[in-house]
Nucleic acid binder design. Structure first.
Lengths: 211, 211
DNA sequence: CATTGTTTGTGAAAATTTTCACAGACAAAT
DNA sequence: ATTTGTCTGTGAAAATTTTCACAAACAATG
């Protein structure tokens, strides 16, 4: 029911709410959350409608309750494992980013062709050789893979991860992957993103910002 | 006139066409380009309509001509400079990614607080201390900045880049930046992206892939 | 030269996403 | 107890994006 865009914003709201709760704030209005998220208040209310969380008129949303509700909606009941394929600069950045962040969505294994990296533990994550992908993913019941390998190996890496049992892929390689359509693919293409920004940075282009 | 989404796809088409031309292919049909880009042929035709490039019925689009047309549309006439703020793992990955890729959109300077990094040249790009941002950006006429610093310094880094003259920002820090609305901001939020993929990786969620 | 089959360019329809705007709820103030 | 002002939840409108579908173009074929 919830669109991809809505899911993205919900995760953003959760991050904002986690900060909010640290400040000791107990309830929050849609327009406050909206301002912090860079959205409109109507948008926030629509999104929360999607997960069926109800606020109080005048008082807004109960922060703790909303966080809990988001957790129930967004997180898999038993937690989910993530695999990282490619432990280069980008891969290490990804590991650093997620290290110890969310236990219910942790990077449980990393893979690289470089035998120098194999066996080492980076940011609390063990690095395996590429040919162990299927086995380790299956064994650790990993559902999601992050592809951070060069373009030439991306398609193969993705296919192997899927053979291991992965159902969703976060792809950093700037190439569209050709995969079964029941596999969810999210592309992060830094080159494309930079070109877009550069285009809109030009004085002659006028469009408002957003993501 | 062209939407942000269209601009994104146009850059993707260009990348695909650059590969196509290497294969010695002289013309391409909308449906072929669409398949490689993961879009529909109607979408491709609409997008190309946007830049006013016309193909030939039955023969399709002239690859070289289209690349040239995309260049005219997407690239700034005199080229554009990019600054990188933050030379950690992610920053280095960004540098490696763009090193020597497109002369008209090159990373001309990098900045970091770490005095160990200052003065060094990473992937052909000199690293400056943070307090030189305004000066170097102004001097090099840099229009676009990539923010790859921790959350806590992202807002400040962005503001200083803007004071130097930057008009567009590619922000990797997982925090919405609060900036003048004439500044174009593009957020790449790896955490949000991974959570989205994880959500759609769950067996109970069914939605088709795309980006 | 006519026919055939394929492809572009594009109005119009469909689908999706966002915003508007307001009834109903309710805390606070009087 | 009543009024006041603000906030939610949501139907409906607006805006945006994508797809449909077909006339016009035209290379290829006979």
């Amino acid at each position: 029911m919830a669109s991809e865009k809505t899911i993205g914003r919900l995760t953003l709201y959760r991050r904002i709410l986690n900060e909010t709760v640290l400040e000791g704030i107990e309830s929050i209005h849609s327009h406050t959350l909206a301002a912090k998220a860079g959205a409109s208040s109507a948008q926030v209310r629509r999104d929360l409608m999607e997960i069926g969380y109800v606020g109080h008129s005048r008082r807004g949303y109960d922060v703790m309750g909303l966080i809990e509700s988001l957790r129930e909606f967004l997180d898999a009941p038993g937690g989910q494992g993530v695999a990282l394929v490619g432990v280069g600069n980008l891969g290490r950045a990804v590991l650093a980013y997620f290290a110890g962040r969310r236990p219910s969505l942790a990077i449980r294994a990393a893979f690289d062709v470089d035998s120098q990296k194999v066996g080492r533990v980076v940011h609390g994550c063990r690095c395996w050789p590429m040919d162990k992908i299927e086995d380790v993913i299956a064994e650790e019941q990993i559902t999601t893979a992050v592809i951070a390998v060069p373009v030439a190996s991306a398609q193969d890496a993705a296919e192997r991860a899927i053979r291991g049992g992965v159902r969703g892929i976060l792809n950093f390689a700037p190439v569209p992957l050709d995969l079964p359509e029941d596999i969810h693919v999210e592309n992060i293409d830094m080159g494309m993103a930079l070109e877009k920004v550069a285009y809109f940075s030009r004085a002659d282009q006028t469009t408002d910002q957003t993501t």
